[in-house]
Simulated scan of single mutants.
Amino acid sequence: MLPKGLAVLTVRARPGHASQGFLQAGKLVFPCALGHGGISAAKREGDGATPLASMRILSGYFRGDRFAGGRRTRLAMTPIGRDLGWCEVPGDRNYNRPVKIPYGASHERMLRTDDLYDACLVLDWNIVPRRRGRGSAIFFHLARPGLTPTQGCVAVTARTMARLLPLLSERTVVRVVR
């Protein structure tokens, strides 16, 4: 049984599988996917690592047409539109920020053909202060089948996300540990 609200989600790597992990929510533990670069205390743009850090959940995005659970949470959740992107160019003025597509610099499209961002929570990694090259778009989102590696995010199944969302708030911290 999950508690009424969660202050901390603790994430650690699965022994022998650096790109998979376990997410502890209260007394329950769920499998999760991590970055293909494992967990790193020296996170850099493009290294594929999940930051070794405590990151607060700021807000989220959801696909209302594909993930109804996006409305059952205390988090500020914004529907994903066709024009939503996330800038990933360290030298750009909007680095690690949402941008409106079309956008001149390289960006990630938030409206994806797969289901990874059907529920996507923004973690406060490298948001304030923002440091060029320290990594962008570190999210807590849905996992691919088989919990295959992410680009540095923490990802869970849609079922796990639907269970957790009602218990999360802007006070919830995702703590990645070793």
Rank of each mutant, 00 (worst) to 15 (best):
residue 2 L to N: 10
residue 13 A to C: 08
residue 14 R to P: 12
residue 16 G to P: 11
residue 20 Q to V: 10
residue 20 Q to L: 08
residue 20 Q to H: 09
residue 21 G to P: 03
residue 22 F to R: 15
residue 22 F to E: 15
residue 22 F to M: 15
residue 23 L to E: 07
residue 23 L to Y: 07
residue 24 Q to L: 13
residue 24 Q to M: 12
residue 27 K to N: 15
residue 28 L to T: 14
residue 29 V to I: 13
residue 29 V to R: 14
residue 30 F to L: 08
residue 31 P to A: 05
residue 32 C to W: 03
residue 35 G to I: 01
residue 36 H to T: 04
residue 39 I to R: 04
residue 39 I to F: 03
residue 39 I to E: 05
residue 39 I to Q: 05
residue 41 A to G: 15
residue 43 K to M: 11
residue 45 E to I: 02
residue 45 E to C: 03
residue 46 G to Y: 02
residue 50 T to I: 07
residue 51 P to R: 04
residue 52 L to E: 08
residue 52 L to Q: 04
residue 53 A to I: 05
residue 54 S to R: 13
residue 55 M to K: 06
residue 59 S to C: 13
residue 59 S to K: 11
residue 62 F to Q: 10
residue 62 F to G: 06
residue 63 R to P: 06
residue 65 D to K: 00
residue 67 F to G: 11
residue 67 F to S: 10
residue 67 F to A: 15
residue 68 A to R: 12
residue 68 A to G: 13
residue 73 T to N: 01
residue 73 T to D: 02
residue 75 L to A: 00
residue 76 A to Q: 14
residue 77 M to G: 02
residue 79 P to S: 01
residue 81 G to K: 05
residue 82 R to L: 10
residue 83 D to F: 03
residue 89 V to K: 09
residue 89 V to M: 08
residue 93 R to G: 10
residue 95 Y to L: 00
residue 96 N to P: 02
residue 96 N to C: 01
residue 98 P to G: 12
residue 99 V to T: 03
residue 99 V to M: 06
residue 100 K to H: 14
residue 101 I to H: 09
residue 103 Y to N: 09
residue 104 G to K: 13
residue 104 G to H: 14
residue 104 G to Q: 14
residue 107 H to M: 01
residue 108 E to Y: 02
residue 108 E to K: 01
residue 109 R to F: 06
residue 114 D to A: 09
residue 115 D to Y: 10
residue 118 D to Y: 00
residue 119 A to R: 11
residue 120 C to N: 01
residue 122 V to A: 07
residue 123 L to C: 03
residue 125 W to D: 00
residue 125 W to P: 03
residue 126 N to P: 04
residue 127 I to S: 06
residue 128 V to G: 12
residue 128 V to I: 09
residue 131 R to E: 15
residue 132 R to S: 15
residue 134 R to D: 15
residue 135 G to N: 03
residue 136 S to L: 04
residue 139 F to W: 09
residue 140 F to A: 05
residue 143 A to Q: 05
residue 144 R to Y: 06
residue 145 P to G: 07
residue 145 P to D: 06
residue 156 V to I: 12
residue 156 V to L: 07
residue 158 A to P: 14
residue 158 A to D: 13
residue 159 R to A: 08
residue 161 M to Y: 00
residue 161 M to L: 02
residue 164 L to K: 07
residue 164 L to V: 04
residue 166 P to M: 04
residue 167 L to Y: 03
residue 169 S to W: 00
residue 172 T to A: 02
residue 177 V to M: 13
